[in-house]
Amino acid sequence: MQREVTFAGFGGQGIMTAGKLLALAGMAEGKEVCWIPSYGPEMRGGTAYCTVVVADRLIGSPIVNDPENVFAFNRPSLDKFAPRVRPGGLLVINSSLIDVQSPRHDITQVLVPCNDLANQLKNGRSINIVGLGAFVARSGMVSLEAQRSVLHKEFGRKKGDVLAATLEVFEAGVRAAQGDKETVRA
């Protein structure tokens, strides 16, 4: 069993970090994981994306051209990656910044207003964590428990209430995806 997701957005949206946190959760579950970044000039301002593969056996090709899941955090990423989602796969759209959906009928599309949710919680920089919560809840690629324990581990050592704030936005993402109100099954 192998599962994949491509997180894509602007540089600075925390795309790479979201992918890394997901990979850590896969590891915590004892799975094989691989995190593959876009690298080079793309890292500086343009579209940033990374792909995370979680599998229960040795991971072969680290390059996945038709990922099972895509999370588009901005419009250029939607345009670039929506056509690549594997038929039957999942496309999560950051509806705060993207006001369209993919015309495809063979995939599930979920709208999550990441920026709005993060801003409501006065944590506007954490849209990646909102997205992570929504994605994990919706895809089940890793368990929510594993992902939460990774957040505790990675943010627990930080100063102040960073951990509490992070968990808060993560759960907001989880609820948004589970609420399912904005799901479009075309």
């Binding site: 890394k20 590891m27 094989e32 691989c34 995190w35 593959i36 970044p37 991971i59 680290p62 390059i63």
Partner: peptide, 8 residues
């Protein structure tokens, strides 16, 4: 890719 990927 060997340089840029992350794996356990």
């Amino acid at each position: 890719l060997i340089g840029q990927m992350m794996e356990p």
